[in-house]
Design a protein around this nucleic acid. Sequence first.
DNA 1: CGAATAGTGTCTGTAAGACACTATTCC
DNA 2: GGAATAGTGTCTTACAGACACTATTCG
Lengths: 264, 264
Amino acid sequence: MAKDKTLFPKVLSDEDTKFVENYQPTDYPPNAVTADVILLTIRSGRLAVLLVERANPPQSGSWALPGGHLRPEESIHETALRELAEKTGFAAEPAHLEQLQTYSTPGRDARDSKMRVTSVAYLAFMPDPGTPRAGSDARLARFWAVDDLPEFNSELTCEDGPTLAFDHAAMLRDGLERAASKLEYTTLATAFVDEQFTISDLRRVYEAVWRNSIDAPNFSRKVKSASGFIESTGGKRATGRAPAGLFVKGEADIISPPFFRPIE
Amino acid sequence: MAKDKTLFPKVLSDEDTKFVENYQPTDYPPNAVTADVILLTIRSGRLAVLLVERANPPQSGSWALPGGHLRPEESIHETALRELAEKTGFAAEPAHLEQLQTYSTPGRDARDSKMRVTSVAYLAFMPDPGTPRAGSDARLARFWAVDDLPEFNSELTCEDGPTLAFDHAAMLRDGLERAASKLEYTTLATAFVDEQFTISDLRRVYEAVWRNSIDAPNFSRKVKSASGFIESTGGKRATGRAPAGLFVKGEADIISPPFFRPIE
DNA sequence: CGAATAGTGTCTGTAAGACACTATTCC
DNA sequence: GGAATAGTGTCTTACAGACACTATTCG
């Protein structure tokens, strides 16, 4: 189809072939491109983000989102997945990974005086994957509940938890907003829970991400009537007090009509 | 405030100062970072996008979104504004400019074999600014109605209009979707009209971007009841048959409750 | 039994969309 | 008058949210 032709022109014009042959990358100002990943999960009913303690400069010793440099042969999306695996030792890919935004303000990285560093932030969701193990140039890797981060909870001070390196606090802020908004009109809440889940599991995802409480009866009816959101397995889980129906994700990606956050 | 500290660390640690001093950009694979702008406007009731005919390789002679390289001292946002001004000669900045997405698939640019080219796409809205004049490395610059582009109208063939260079068709597709969705929950439709406008002007923006027709009576009531969307100037415009009330943009940026596109 | 959770039914307010109807201007 | 546009009123349907109520399990 035509899309392939524009995306990957297999045949270059003679002019372009010559142009590329004579092209000297060193004639241009140097740039670095990196991917940083905001991996969110739900732990004990609280929204948590994966952070690593940096082992190397710049900002060695401070906490940051896992990330690293684009390699010549990979897409930036692949960079995000690779860095996540390297820095945390998770075998499983996140249930959802999407590009968030690109950050390039001059001065955001100490190296900017010699080479501009442009970072593409990615947003990822997955069920609680347990404890990460720090890899490559990370000293530590762990999940932090978002409201245990001083920059996201005005009741805490810098002494109470990590403050973030670079502009990663801004990235996280944008990621949290995107996550909250995505739950409104997509079925991505299911990316936070196991393959089989109860409606209450799903409701707790919404409550953690939206930081509010939701009327359980109304939520239950809404989810069941949104076509393609969830499908009953017929099974029951007796973990709580009353046995709850078990469900799996349906085929739909979009909720119609959307669920709305209460207006703040 | 804390945000400034993380974004622009004025004081580097000794370790970081040393690290930056010893940093050799040429030790790393070369990268280029560019900004490409999807500038949308409404012309004769139709949604139109600004394209330039490329004067230089790669893909010289084909039509593309205006764009160019990040310079060492500027943010990528500033690159977008600068390239737009250079390539089209518009004195006025667009009424709205936001980052859309970053494109980095290997092979998207012929130069990728020597240096990866990562492009940050921007989405811009403005009232019809008249005819652009081609500047810097553009042979021609003009607006194209989106449904005069063969890649966006299945009834046209390549003979009937320009097909887009690189992956710019994918960018435009994403931009159109973003624009349509932004009109649902923001007041950005006002970025397409002059400072003073009638409710029908605003409705025609929605109709052009959403590619549908909207019931005028319902639209009128909805816009007027959405607090902060528009404010009456008291004036009237007699251009049409019946005189229509004139309005300016209100202080709100978000429409609550949102306007919804009809489900396709 | 009492507490906690799962799930039902029912009511109210708000808003979207359909559409009949009136008002104003230009030809 | 007739066509085009601007703007009103009103009706139906749908859904969000409040909340009373029942059912099931564990301590």
